[in-house]
Design a binder for these strands. Structure first.
Lengths: 124, 124
DNA sequence: CTAACAATTAAGCAATCGTTTAATTGAATT
DNA sequence: AATTCAATTAAACGATTGCTTAATTGTTAG
């Protein structure tokens, strides 16, 4: 009798037929909690525009239209990114007349960027 | 005469009408080269499954079906991620009989993960 | 008040991403 | 040689992403 293809046997199965790991499945799964949720930050930096925005704001407080000009993008596009960054408390803003100035609100994010630069430098 | 909406004036325009920055546009743009290309690595880690794979492989060499079992995902799904990770030289593999064992090929990526963990820990 | 400008928000859309299912390859076992 | 199992690859699909255009809000200047 042929196996039907909807058997989803990879869920909760006891690893392979021929066991590979000396470490138990459960042990490995516990470790996973260490990295749970980390991708959120990485996802933010995974967009080049956002990384650039953060890096620019680390140099200097800038208004939206400055960012738009420097990055050669539309203001709505920049504004959307800033909204996300603000929600995550990576940037803060203040209004001054018609303009809204943004600045970095999380110095630690720079460590991440620095670390990535080192990683990048080591590739050949 | 009304301005037509396809004028794209945010390209190469001289910043805002009311100048904000004391720093010139050009200066800021030069800085941007510092972070160019970094998002590639961040994009990799921006997917939780991939971060988990890398973290697991940092603990121990594992075959594809082990990873699939621990992460409770299909083998093709895992395989796709591994292919990307290998292309970027983050992991390497070796064949042993029917199984293919993967292991970490880039220790520096762990620094990035560690840095993100610290960042995560500081949020409340 | 009205006009002008910075910024935000909303709606729509194309491109990308991560998964699934199915087919295929590679190797060992019988 | 045929079967079985691990792994990869290909095709297809739904969800998400990041942008655009258009409309709206907030503030200042005339």
């Amino acid at each position: 009798m042929i196996k039907i293809s909807d058997d989803k046997s990879y869920f909760n199965q006891d690893l392979c037929d021929d066991y590979c790991p000396s470490v138990k499945e459960e042990e490995l799964r516990e470790r996973l909690t260490d990295v749970e949720g980390l991708s959120e930050i990485f996802k933010v930096l995974g967009d080049e525009t956002r990384t650039k925005i953060l890096y620019l704001l680390a140099q200097k407080e800038l208004c939206v239209c400055d960012l738009a000009a420097v990055l050669e993008m539309s203001m709505p596009a920049i504004s959307h990114h800033l909204r996300l960054l603000k929600m995550l408390r990576l940037v803060k803003n203040r209004r001054e007349g018609k303009m809204v100035y943004y600045s970095l609100d999380d110095d630690h994010i720079l460590n991440l960027i620095r670390e990535a630069q080192e990683h990048y430098a080591e590739e050949r």
